[in-house]
Simulated assay, not measured.
Amino acid sequence: MPLLSTVLAAALAATPACVEPPPDPSNTFDAARTYEKLVRDYPDIRIAADPLPAGVRKIGDQVYAQYGARCLKLDAYLPAGERLPVVVLVHGGGWKSGYRSEFVPMALRLARHGYAAVTVSYRLSGEARYPAAVQDVQAAVRWVRAHADELHIDPQRVALAGGSAGGQIASLAGVTAEAGEVKAIINIDGLSDFTSELALKHEDDPKKNPSSAGAWFGGRYAEQGALWQAASPIRYVRAGMPPILFIGSGQPRFSAGREEMMARMAQAGVASEKLILPETPHAFWLFDPWLQPTVDASLAFLYRYLR
């Protein structure tokens, strides 16, 4: 036993301390800046914000993965109870920007209804290209399941959810996870097929040098076609995969491939559901009055497939 303690102490001493990366001035995707862009066309919107509900505790800045001195962190919002179902939330930002704080309002509203909710950071495309972000989210799921006792959650009832790029990442991480790790997926305005005509029209536009997807993959479709295909959740439809709720804006380009993926899921005998919020902008989940119907649909779906 003393030898084990000595080895463990040496290993811990050899682990580099976490170093926060410096603020990135190009990372401009957040609720406040998005509000400034949208309020002229949608004057009734409000940035969604919620206080920490009574009985819900926050466990913040938990390191779930470390690469040298680079640490990836998550925040957990935990209502009272034991063996709670948990939703891991993945932020958007075109794979190149965004913050986990984007999903705090949704996390708190889920927690108010008895769900543990976890918001995660992951490596953006400027730091590490595909598939790093997907691997990070899967690592976060494994961390949450491994710490089920401390978090008072049920490791057999884990859902993944995300918006925009986070919706695509959540879908891909969920459908390619080890069997049983993820039981349900919520894709909010995220791509299902990078290779669809609609997605290529925008994400492989030669006028964008590079596009957000092109930067993530390290090249255009003609150059990195195998990666564009591999990152498309539609490629992994199969019997036994998790059911998916698709929540879409009034901007079809951001959920390209959704209808075909739902059709393939039906053929495979896998449940899928869809809610479209018409006349809404992309990133609608950052704002009221649109966050609440997003949460309501998510709660109904999670009750069916996670409870």
Rank of each mutant, 00 (worst) to 15 (best):
Y115F: 13
H113F: 07
P210V: 10
R307E: 13
L4D: 11
A230H: 09
S171C: 13
K58I: 06
V141Y: 00
A69K: 11
F301I: 05
S97H: 08
A173D: 08
A148C: 10
S196Q: 02
A76V: 14
L52Q: 08
D193I: 01
V182F: 04
G98W: 05
Q229I: 01
I169N: 00
A80F: 11
V39I: 15
L89A: 08
V118I: 15
G219Y: 07
M106L: 12
R123E: 01
H113P: 04
S196C: 09
D75I: 00
D61H: 09
D205T: 05
R70C: 02
W285F: 13
I169M: 11
I45V: 11
L191Y: 14
A48F: 05
V90W: 03
L4N: 10
G92H: 03
E150F: 12
Y99C: 02
P252M: 11
A49N: 08
F217G: 12
E150A: 13
K201H: 15
Y130N: 01
L306M: 03
T28Y: 07
S232A: 05
P53Q: 06
Y130K: 00
L277P: 00
L124S: 02
T28Q: 13
G163H: 12
L198S: 12
V141T: 02
L151F: 07
S196V: 07
T6P: 08
R220T: 09
P22I: 04
A111L: 09
Q138N: 07
V182Y: 00
I244H: 04
D154L: 06
G114T: 04
A133I: 07
R70I: 05
G174F: 00
T195W: 04
T176F: 08
Y305Q: 03
R238M: 02
P289L: 06
A159W: 01
E260T: 15
E260K: 12
G240R: 00
A239Q: 10
A222K: 10
L302I: 08
D75F: 00
S196W: 01
D30I: 03
V137E: 01
E279V: 13
V90R: 02
L299M: 11
